[in-house]
Design a protein around this nucleic acid. Sequence first.
DNA 1: GCAAAAGTGTTTATGTTACACCCATGT
DNA 2: ACATGGGTGTAACATAAACACTTTTGC
Lengths: 228, 228
Amino acid sequence: MPFTYEHARPSVTVDCVVFGFAGEGLQLLLVKRGGEPYEGEWALPGGFVRLDEDLDSAARRELEEETQLRETYLEQLYTFGSPERDPRGRVISVGYYALVRPDRQPVAGGTDAADARWFPLNGLPSLAFDHGEIIKVARDRLQGKIRYQPIGFELLPEKFTLTQIQTLYEAILGCPIDKRNFRKKLLSFGFLEALEEYVRGPHRPARLYRFDQARYSKLQREGILFQI
Amino acid sequence: MPFTYEHARPSVTVDCVVFGFAGEGLQLLLVKRGGEPYEGEWALPGGFVRLDEDLDSAARRELEEETQLRETYLEQLYTFGSPERDPRGRVISVGYYALVRPDRQPVAGGTDAADARWFPLNGLPSLAFDHGEIIKVARDRLQGKIRYQPIGFELLPEKFTLTQIQTLYEAILGCPIDKRNFRKKLLSFGFLEALEEYVRGPHRPARLYRFDQARYSKLQREGILFQI
DNA sequence: GCAAAAGTGTTTATGTTACACCCATGT
DNA sequence: ACATGGGTGTAACATAAACACTTTTGC
C-alpha cells in the first residue's frame, strides 16, 4: 500500500446539529456564515479538523468557538462525503449531534460566526451545503435513540417535572403519549429520583425529579434495558 | 471562514468489517498487508478515498479490489480519527461493515492485498492499526441492528431454513433462543415466503424460506415494526 | 369559585415465556 | 430400527393500552 503522501487529500470538517428544547418544541442552533461560500446563509456550527486533534475534540472546539456552548452531550452521527457537497472542493464532513440543556443556552456570536440563533425545528431557514440532509439524519437518530437510551434528560434542566419530560418525548417522537402510562413506565425503571421540591403555578404544584446517572449505570450493568 | 486550501489536510481511508456466516459461527474477512506499515499483518480491507468518489463507492471499490466481493450489503459504521491511529501521519478512517452471503464467498487475493482469508470472529489474529477497535464497534452495531432490521438475511443464502436463521441469530446475539417462539414470531411478521422446496438429509426434510423484500418494505411503510 | 395543570388505578388486550413430544428422512 | 434434526400448540405470566376523575394551587 502506498504512502499517505502520494494521495490527494480531502479536507475534513465537523458539523454539529445542536438540539435544544424550549418548553414546547425542539429547536436547532444555527450560525450565520461570515464568509464564502454561502456567506450570510444559515448553517450548522462546525469547521475544519486540525491535524493534531481527534474528531470529538474538533466538534467540541468548533461548538464552543461558534456558539459558546460547553459540556454538552455530543455524539458522532454519520460522515457525509459526496464529492459535490462543498463548492470549494472535496470536503468530507463528520456530522455530530449535540443536546443542550435549556439553562445553558445563552448564546452570543462566537469568533468564527457572525451570528448564532435558535430556530424551531419546524421552521428552519434554507441552509448552506447539505446541512438540511445532515439535520434529517440527526433527527432520525434522536428519534430512534431516545426510545432506548436516557438521553432525553440532556435536553432538560437538571430538575424537571414529569410533564416536561413527557412533552419532550412527544415533541421528539411526534405523537401524543398517555400520561398515566408514561409516568408509570418511566418511574418503574427506578432511575428517577423524586425530590422534595415543587414548581408552583396557577394550578397544583408539580413535583421535580432528577435523573440519577449512577443508578442508571448500575441498572444497565445488570442488563436491565430501558424502552419507551 | 477561511478557504479549504489554507488548512492542513488529513488523509481519509475507508475500512470494511466484512462479516460472513459459516453455518455455525460468524466469520470475518481479513487481508494480509502487502506494504508498510504493518507489512505482513492482518487488517481490514480498505484504502484511500479518491477525490472524485463518494464514501460508499470508495468502500465498495476497495472491497472489490481487495477481496473480489461485489454487491454485498454495506453500511457506514463510524468514523475513527484519533491522531495516533496511523503511524504514517494523520489518517481518518470511515468504517463500514459488510454482510456477505455464503454463496458469494469465493475469495482470492486481489490487486492490493497479498492475501485474504476468513477468520472465525472468536479467533482473530492480532490486527494492524486500530482495526480491533473498529471490529468491536461493528460487532456491537450488528448485534443491535439485527434485532430491529431484517439484515440477517444478508448473511444467508437466498433460500434458507428456519434453523439456519435461528443459528445465525444465536451466533450474533450470543445466547440460545427458544425454537418454537422464534419461529412463531419470525413467521408472524409475514415477510418470509415459504417455498415448496425442502433440504434433504438424514432426518425430516427442512422447508426453505425466502425473505420477501417487497412485502417487508410494504409493512415498513405501514409502520409495522419488526423486533426480535 | 373558577381555570389550569398535576396526579392517580384498574381493567382489558396483547405479547412473551416456558415447555415436550411426534415426524420424516437416511443409513 | 435407530439416529438426526424438523416441526408443532398451549397455558401461565408479564407487559402495554385504554380510560376519567380528584387534587391543589393562583387569581
